[in-house]
Nucleic acid binder design. Structure first.
Lengths: 192, 192
DNA sequence: GTCTATACGCCGATAGAC
DNA sequence: GTCTATCGGCGTATAGAC
């Protein structure tokens, strides 16, 4: 891609993405039609199609900043020597992304449509394999693998649940991390 | 409802539901159109409409046997005197439903469309409140509530995950229940 | 009471004019 | 780069045959 058009654009992808995120957050992904996004951004439906070939492309582009952060999380975790420290780094990193109100991920992670879409993304599956190996080792036991799967599946539904509402950001992070540690039978790391 | 029609039907809801479940399980709920279900059952799309006014009605009717079982689970749990025993009864009951291959719930629980649909059902929300009180008491601490939310959200994604594939049904139940106990900080009950 | 024929308005997506 | 026009398919809905 990126045939590098030297000219600046009039509406630009940024405005389309901003409009899309606004509507996705308010109404959900599936409920928001391309017509809605186009109207909100001030173009026609077909005008959208110049920038994005499919609706999925729009959704994924809204998420790009968050998704790009995932490899950074695992890279940081690789530096730690103990398993407990790596677990905290990876789980904490994911939780941070999930709790960041300004990221598309936080807004959309719980969206049913997105979960389906992400599981089809090859790059996402590869990252997940890396993260699993990093946390559980090359030959993990079934118990730990199940715990990790439950944490990831549970996080998306939990991070925006009303039970977290009375807590501040630091407490939320702490509570969710504690859940992850319990599921993985991991101790609180002593280093760092 | 139940205006008790004395005559028997030619195709009957049972066959429609069987066809729907078959396609839902194979292709997912959203991918399956009413036209697909009608063709599979041997009627026209409008023929479906005589029995069900909306697609959601079909989905909910496929689930009815499973959903009807939930109150039974909480009723059984009320008989126990210790919290640990109640936790095991409720969590175990939900896990059993989620793992039963012959129930619509097991097939559809992980389906994104369904999770959205169920959260809109008033009866479902009421049951969830009951179950929460039963397990955590009338004034639960935040930690336990978060653990329970993560378990429920995580179960639907975990119960059909490939990591469970090598296990038999008894081991699957055991592993998932162990996850729930850890999240709720509940001991294995000594009674029963 | 059970089904078919037909249609409505909206969807995501495409072709081609300006 | 953005438009109008159009496509096939969707969920939903009514009229009326049997």
């Amino acid at each position: 891609m990126e045939t590098a058009p030297p000219r600046r654009r009039r509406v630009g992808r940024e405005q389309l993405l901003a409009a899309a995120l606004r509507l996705f957050a308010r109404d959900g992904i599936q409920t928001t039609s391309l017509q809605d996004i186009a109207t909100e951004a001030g173009v026609t439906k077909a005008g959208l199609y110049y920038h994005y070939k499919t609706k999925d492309e729009i959704v994924l582009d809204v998420l790009r900043p968050s998704l790009d952060e995932l490899p950074t999380v695992t890279r940081r975790a690789e530096a730690h020597r103990t398993r407990a420290a790596r677990v905290d780094e990876v789980l904490g990193g994911i939780i941070d992304i999930a709790l960041d109100e300004n990221s598309g991920f936080a807004v959309l992670m719980k969206d049913p449509y997105l979960q389906q879409l992400l599981s089809q993304q090859e790059s996402m599956r590869r990252w997940w394999d890396d993260a699993t190996t990093l946390i559980l080792g090359p030959a993990p036991d079934v118990e730990a693998r199940i715990g990790l799967v439950m944490f990831i599946n549970g996080l998306s539904g939990t991070s925006r649940d009303p039970v977290l509402a009375p807590l501040d950001d630091r407490s939320r992070r702490q509570q969710l991390l504690a859940c992850g540690r319990r599921l993985l039978r991991a101790e609180q790391p002593t280093e760092a």
